[in-house]
Design a protein around this nucleic acid. Structure first.
Lengths: 315, 315
DNA sequence: CCATTTATACTCAAATTGAGCATAATTGGC
DNA sequence: GCCAATTATGCTCAATTTGAGTATAAATGG
């Protein structure tokens, strides 16, 4: 009577530099991108976190540091193709628990079937560092409008999610935006899941961003939103930076994660007041221009209990 | 080879008035308090949320409104006594998914085996509305100190969690505080779980707050922390208030949830600027003193996209 | 009708934010 | 070797927000 259950663990492992934020991506047998993942074996694993660390280590050679749980998905509508379940019992229902891991540098993983990928490849509409991507006005907005029709609730959701009609763009809402596109049939996964369920394959509409296997892009969107929110009130940014860095490097890294430019002077001033970083006196040999001072993260400040995030003054 | 898995769903259903915050509490066969819960049956349930709504309806007669997922626990150390698993396969490992539900009033549930309980009964150290509870300095601090001994990391965790030695009390950290007490053997559940695993029953040390079945108090602590954080940046407070309310009622309700007094004038001013509420011109017939104006929540403001929380200026 | 209680209004200094302009120290042509 | 371009860093100032106090208004209950 009760159908079998399987718990899948999925890891979004994030690194970032001044250029872009990266996620660790694996490939399945068909070469489709996905997240490092595996099944949770209740007999062999004491906790989710341990199981996750073990899987990630095996699949990518990567040793996880900072880890936090994201969300547990169990929807029927997103039931997975059997191919993704490997050794699960037939017809097993998958419950997937997503985790976020942060790492200070893109460690070498060349020996494994995993690569670091700029996460905006999967979410091209999320990068507003050089202004709002034209993709939104040119393609996403018209496609969503066609989907919404005269349904007021759909129109509302669309405007709020994508910051249309004078609403502000809220970078934390990466999941809402992806789910909206999925619902509107504008994500490759939606096309795939529907044809699998209904065995119909009508004319494929235009879809946005590179799709991933299973519901992995949804988990990645959850991670992006969570990290973007958390960076503002907890010093997680320093889990992603090297030991020493210049203020510009830190700022560009944060901008890459938020997909949003920040106001330089105000960023520095607020950081100064926060006591989160400490100048080292040493200079960095930068590419062109005046050399910048090197800084380090003051872990002591966090232990004093105030635990603030990095400032994010809008530019 | 793979042990059976069961997914348990647990609901923290919260109501609040100017006196206290309440959680909906059920009782097991032995009269021990717990949260409304049930197993997720993958065959019968499409999504976690639907299953949850069904269970809660059956156990408490309660119709859930606002719902959000909290956290998924899967630790081995907190394995549950078989009694709590009811119709699960023997030796099943329980994965428990916690949900938070909010409701504007304490609806009548007298026909069911469920009651509304002031949540501070389970967490007496969390209510700082009338100053820091003396329980902390009198009993918790010495007990934790005895546990920490000279272990610097333990001393540090203790001070940060409970705001000792000049650290600020951070009301969101309800889970950290409970887990610390559990680890230190100062929660009734810890005593119970240890004796179940080790079959020893030494002298029971003093424990704090009323224990709950299974890991339900841990889930309740998660809910408290989450709600306390969210109330500051999303207008969830209005999911808990009646249609119309006075500003004082709103303030006292928020204070009850945070366990923290707020600065009256600044609370009003910030609320004013936020556009979250709108005066109705009508007066409330209060108990004693000048009558207060009635207000209502402006849902329209949220739809305009700014979606701020209620202000929480420290008193 | 007066003391008490509660609500609401007003004020003011301190701190923070937003956004500009000015100056310093490099590199890379020419 | 000098000048332009580039990047880092410093300084200023008005506008806004915060923190916290004082004053006034409108009820209730002896």
């Amino acid at each position: 009577m009760t159908a079998p259950l399987a718990v899948g663990l999925n890891a979004v492992i994030v690194a970032a530099d001044t250029e872009a934020p990266y996620a660790l991506i694996t490939q399945n047998a068909h070469g489709s991108p996905g997240l490092p993942h595996g099944r949770f074996d209740p007999a062999g694993h004491r906790t989710f976190e341990r199981a996750l660390r073990e899987w990630v280590q095996a699949q990518t050679g990567f040793e996880l540091g900072y880890v936090e749980q994201l969300y547990t998905f169990g929807d029927y509508g997103r039931e997975l193709p059997q191919a993704d379940l490997e050794d699960a019992p037939p017809n097993a229902r998958l419950v997937s628990v997503g985790y976020l891991g942060l790492t200070p540098e893109r460690t070498d993983i060349s020996a494994f079937r995993a690569v670091w990928r700029d996460w905006y490849r999967f979410f091209p509409w999320e990068d507003h560092r050089r202004g709002r991507p034209t993709l939104i006005a040119d393609a996403i907005e018209p496609a969503l409008e066609a989907w919404a029709g005269t349904d007021d609730q759909r129109i509302d959701r669309m405007r709020l999610a994508f910051g249309l009609h004078g609403r502000p763009w809220i970078e934390e809402n990466a999941l809402e935006r992806y789910e909206l596109l999925y619902e509107a049939g504008l994500a490759g996964e939606a096309v795939r899941d529907r044809s699998a369920l209904e065995s119909v394959s009508g004319p494929s509409p235009s879809v946005f961003g590179e799709p991933m296997i299973s519901d992995h892009r949804r988990i990645l969107a959850t991670a992006i939103g969570r990290l973007r929110g958390k960076i503002k009130y907890r010093p997680v940014a320093f889990e992603l930076t090297p030991e020493t860095f210049t203020l510009s490097e830190l700022q560009r890294t944060v901008e890459a994660l938020l997909g949003q430019p920040l106001h330089k002077q105000n960023f520095r001033r607020a950081l100064d007041r926060s006591d989160l970083v400490e100048g080292l006196g040493r200079q960095s040999t930068t590419t062109g221009g005046r050399p910048a001072e090197l800084f380090r993260f003051r872990r002591e400040t966090v232990r004093r209990g105030l635990a603030l995030g990095v400032p994010t003054p809008r530019a």
